[in-house]
């Protein structure tokens, strides 16, 4: 799984790089605009240790933001599954708010919270929170009638059991959504760092942009892709483990 994700990313990355170099040589662009392979390599040797630290910083913020979002989406999803007005209100609010681009709110967050960790964490969480919430509300609101019937008829049903049944029956969907939103968490963190933060790989890219140093940006992109692939692989592994533990082959 890991090697598949990594080599897929490496192929895409080097195809993109080859395309850039092709444009450079066809249009005879200067090294200042698009650096040559040797310059990219030299830059990589110089900045990789520092950038690796920045990417790990970004990844840790993304992971914490992602976990916060999952917890929050689970709590709101549990409330949103209710058939009362509270449940309906949460569902409608979630659908409406998720349609609004969170990045547009980011400057307000930076103004209010400054450019430290809390702003990065909040933006990362918000960007991956709404897709998670929509899926969780959908999954937890959908009755699994053929399992729930017994517990309802015998008056044993409670909210914990209901959530457990619905989550268990949709474990594959939940895994897919969690893995999908992990990319969004990483994107959210980098965007936050790019806008105004004072640390992380997004911040490093912003500095490189001010210096018009494309080589540094290309190295940063390579490290971001590799670390994101590692994180996604890790989540997929956890998801597979959960599915393997719970699901059983069909009989006949």
């Amino acid at each position: 799984m890991l090697h598949r994700r990594i080599y897929q990313f490496v192929i895409v990355y080097f195809l993109g790089l080859a395309f850039l170099l092709l444009i450079k040589y066809i249009l005879n662009l200067s090294d200042y605009l698009i650096p040559g392979p040797q310059e990219i390599w030299r830059t990589a040797c110089r900045v990789v240790p520092r950038y690796l630290f920045s990417v790990m910083d970004t990844l840790s913020v993304a992971v914490i933001g992602h976990i916060l979002s999952i917890c929050l989406a689970t709590i709101v999803g549990i409330i949103g599954r209710l058939t009362t007005w509270v449940g309906s209100f949460i569902k409608v609010a979630a659908y409406n708010i998720q349609a609004y681009p969170i990045v547009a709110v980011a400057p307000i967050i930076f103004i209010l919270l400054g450019d430290g960790l809390s702003s990065r964490l909040l933006i990362a969480s918000m960007i991956c929170y709404f897709p998670l919430l929509l899926s969780f509300v959908g999954i937890l609101s959908e009755p699994v009638a053929d399992i729930e019937q017994f517990y309802i008829a015998t008056k044993r049903m409670n909210w914990r059991l209901q959530v457990k049944i619905r989550a268990f029956e949709n474990i594959t969907k939940i895994t897919t959504v969690v893995v999908g939103s992990a990319t969004l968490a990483m994107v959210g963190t980098i965007v936050a760092e790019f806008i105004a933060a004072n640390a992380g790989i997004g911040y490093s890219i912003r500095i490189a942009l001010y210096q018009s140093d494309l080589a540094k940006i290309l190295v940063a992109l390579f490290l971001i892709g590799t670390c994101t692939s590692l994180y996604l692989t890790c989540l997929e592994w956890i998801g597979r483990l959960a599915q393997k533990r719970w699901s059983v082959p069909r009989g006949g």
Binding site: D146, I147, Q149, A153, T154, K164, F168, E169, W246
Partner: peptide
Amino acid sequence: LYSYNLERLPGWYSVGDHLAEI
């Protein structure tokens, strides 16, 4: 009580554990 033929037991239990619990 109303029961029908398409009902299922929760997948996290073995049949014996489920019967003992309910």
